[in-house]
Amino acid sequence: MKHFNFQKKVETNSLKMGIGSSKKKKKQEGLMNQSRAILQREDESPPSTPKNLKSILSSSALIKEFREFLQILDSADADESGSRVTALEFVLAVRAILTSTDNQDQETRIRRLGEKYFRVPGEGIVLDNTELWERCSRLCRSSSPKGEEDLRLLRLAETSVRKELDELHIVFLESRKENSSTVEKIMNCIL
């Protein structure tokens, strides 16, 4: 009577099918994961083609480019009240408050927000809704604990300001595309 070693047969067939090369695959997958992680970091180079304001605000490199773009627009319109760069900084500051999990940190950030953006009407940040501006100003000066309703006010103010930036990001993306196509043309001429 012949004994059949089923385990050995499975191992042999697995090797033939390429399953046995798992060590090599694991090493390759590890390198691929590392490469993917490097490419996905926010602090590295920005995505080549951001699609919207949200993608710009998720990359520190793109925020820097967008800030520089807004500074150019601000310097061209020196007579206009309310700075575009100030609007961007406000949006980023409110987002930092909303994502903070530490109550003490949140309180400190809200006070700074009030000192910088809600101190004097018409200065700092300009909102279309004056009552919202006044309520945010009171909220930032208040020493009482901030609740969900208070954070909702800040979200409304951030949304209002972000709408202005939303229109400008399209121009930013177009100018960025033009600059990259110029670089591509130069590279093609060199090649």
Rank of each mutant, 00 (worst) to 15 (best):
K54S: 13
R119V: 02
F118D: 02
V126T: 11
L153Q: 12
L62A: 09
R152C: 05
V161G: 03
I97A: 01
Q104L: 14
S81M: 12
S75E: 13
E123W: 04
S100Y: 02
R138L: 12
A157D: 06
A37W: 04
Q34R: 15
I19P: 00
T101N: 11
L39N: 10
T101K: 11
R36H: 09
M187C: 08
L113K: 05
R155K: 15
F6E: 13
P121Y: 13
Q104N: 07
I110C: 03
A37F: 07
L62R: 01
M1L: 06
S75F: 04
N188Y: 03
A87Q: 12
V126R: 10
S81E: 13
A78R: 15
A37C: 04
E123Y: 04
P121R: 15
T130V: 14
I125V: 14
T99P: 00
S48I: 10
D79Y: 12
L57G: 03
E131V: 11
I110Q: 04
E80R: 15
L151N: 10
A37H: 09
E178L: 10
E44M: 09
G82P: 07
E68T: 08
L139A: 01
K163Q: 14
R41S: 15
A93H: 13
L31A: 06
V10A: 02
D128G: 15
F118S: 05
P145M: 09
S143L: 12
G18K: 03
K24D: 15
R36V: 10
K64E: 06
A157E: 02
S55C: 06
I186H: 08
L127C: 04
K64Q: 10
F6H: 11
E29R: 14
